[in-house]
Design a protein around this nucleic acid. Structure first.
Lengths: 325, 325
DNA sequence: CTCACTTACGTGACGCGTAAGAATC
DNA sequence: GATTCTTACGCGTCACGTAAGTGAG
């Protein structure tokens, strides 16, 4: 089987069954009856020459091959949906550049970057697409946006990116906290403090991004409460025995009488990147990325942003997806 | 249209038409007659609500949306083929790890890496898949291999990777060349010399990878002849007014009486990476990558490989596709 | 016995092929 | 007028639904 008679229907059916592990419920979800679904999966297995599920009449279970196909099928189906979306968008919004951003997550660079891009000859109109934490990369993958400005890009699957700025990450502590008086702190000193996390992220992820999980002994570290947004996160820190980690620019945007910011010497910087789908080949995206890197170089050049913002390697004329020169 | 009635058949048909720009030839290629193909494309356009081609009865031309769909369709179809291949391979070769390598392209690390991986408890048998220049990444994307050891990974689309070693890249010159006596060279001094290229690569790419194209004035630079393999490349340099660029380890493997190696101070290093499909989540792949980074750390640690090989940032316990800490 | 999956069978829709029509060079 | 794409029409296949069968709890 060379895959030339495989159809998306087969994959949609298989995903439903693999997720439900139950043919009846899967069939309901697909809006068909069980028998055709059974037959479809059987045919698929026969064509692939592979057992995908071990079925007892009572319950179904995925084989290794089945788990592989589930993961791959989701990828293919996502790619197909993105294909449709990008195609329709290419026709409807020809000559428009959609930029996915999170409000306030861009170290104040967005305005300058957009201005720099719009100054380029032949620039197309820019439209902003706002989204919550972590939604920007999903918007790129799904074909809802052409390019994104994101802080701390985490899952780069399917995306290319360039670092725009790396800012120091500060520990945010209650003013009367024992550690609040220090000039600088180390990760180790903060290891015992809970870190609040945010919707869509796990406590593990919050600590991981704060680089605390990478330290030995982090297993016994406490997990923090959940914060709905940034203001709430600051309130949580202001109330109790928590620490939060914010980029210098974000911390500066939200001053709070009860809180102090202390640099952490050995923590990873907070990185703002431009990102775009790996298969993107449009002139507008390339020029927006170039504009972002120019702005970043300019900002760094004039010693801006509290003096220790560092620029990403702005090899402006290398094509996307390139070796790191 | 949410894409839920799109099928791979539609994409296969569209790709054929978009590539041939001729319904008759496309139909022949697909093994059907023209009328169904015309209807299929029409239906597709109607469902997407988008014009994909502007047809005169004499010739067809792609619209912007059509170009987008062509690119996206290839991606979806490749993903579907890879899905089939990975699924069948998961069943047939359960518990086997296929490593794609180019003979001699790995700075001599392959044996150590494989040994380090096989020493891990629970390691599965390793199989080597040899391929020519640049084929390794294609093998990963197509699902023929699980992991690859590649030099100068260029197109990272769909792949994650970690740098194993970065070696200095040397200029290879004929012994009696005027520049051959220098202790070190700069890219600028070599700009006027042609660079031979290899099958599957363009002269542009050869120069680009030598970082010569990044210099101002590179447009007027001469293009070199084509070399079928490494030995032939060295012969070309030994014969004429050419320069080639090799990593220190590769150059050391192929000594040649008429050639000398001169370090180039401002050239990019030659980078050996481990790469794997971004969606890979298998334990074997993760452990192979970890083993590679351990070996790299060990090699660097004992000051091996001519003393200036540098290790990639081996953050061994971060998950794939992570922020660059 | 019940419930879930499979096998059997009839029907309808969809896609293919042949044939005829329209438009460009 | 030749060539290429489109429209028209008949047919076969394939996937669906209903109904009956099988096996595990």
């Amino acid at each position: 089987m060379n895959g030339s008679d495989l159809e998306l229907r087969d994959l949609r059916y298989f995903v439903a069954v693999a997720e439900e592990l139950n043919f009846k419920r899967a069939a309901e979800r697909l809006g068909i009856t069980q028998p055709p679904l059974s037959r479809a999966i059987q045919t698929l297995e026969r064509r692939l020459g592979v057992a995908l599920l071990i079925r007892t009449t009572r319950r179904a279970e995925l084989t290794d091959a089945g788990r592989t196909l589930l993961r791959e099928s989701r990828h293919v189906l996502d790619a197909a949906e993105a294909a449709v979306r990008r195609t329709t968008r290419a026709a409807q919004t020809a000559g428009e550049l959609v930029v996915a951003v999170k409000p306030g997550g861009h170290a104040g660079l967005l305005k300058d970057i957009v201005a720099a891009y719009e100054a380029v000859p032949g620039a197309v109109p820019v439209r902003m697409a706002l989204g919550g934490w972590g939604e920007q990369s999903a918007m790129l993958r799904a074909g809802h946006a052409d390019v994104a400005l994101v802080r701390d890009l985490f899952d780069t699957r399917g995306l290319d990116h360039e670092v725009v700025v790396a800012e120091p990450r500060l520990a945010v502590l209650r003013r009367d906290h024992p550690l609040a008086g220090a000039d600088v702190l180390t990760r180790r000193q903060l290891l015992h403090l809970p870190v609040p996390y945010w919707p869509g992220a796990s406590p593990r992820l919050a600590r991981y991004r704060a680089a605390l999980d990478l330290l030995p002994g982090a297993e016994e570290a406490p997990r923090g409460p959940r914060a709905a947004d940034l203001v709430q996160l600051l309130e949580i820190v202001a109330m109790g025995e928590c620490v939060a980690f914010l980029s210098a620019s974000t911390a500066g945007q939200y001053p709070h009488a009860d809180l102090v910011h202390v640099p952490v010497v050995d923590i990873s910087p907070s990185v703002v990147s431009v990102a775009w789908p790996q298969e993107a080949r449009s002139r507008a995206v390339a020029e927006f990325v170039a504009a972002a890197l120019r702005v970043a170089a300019r900002e760094t050049g004039r010693g801006e942003a509290r003096g220790d913002t560092t620029r990403g390697d702005a090899h402006g004329d290398t094509p996307p997806g390139d070796a790191p020169w």
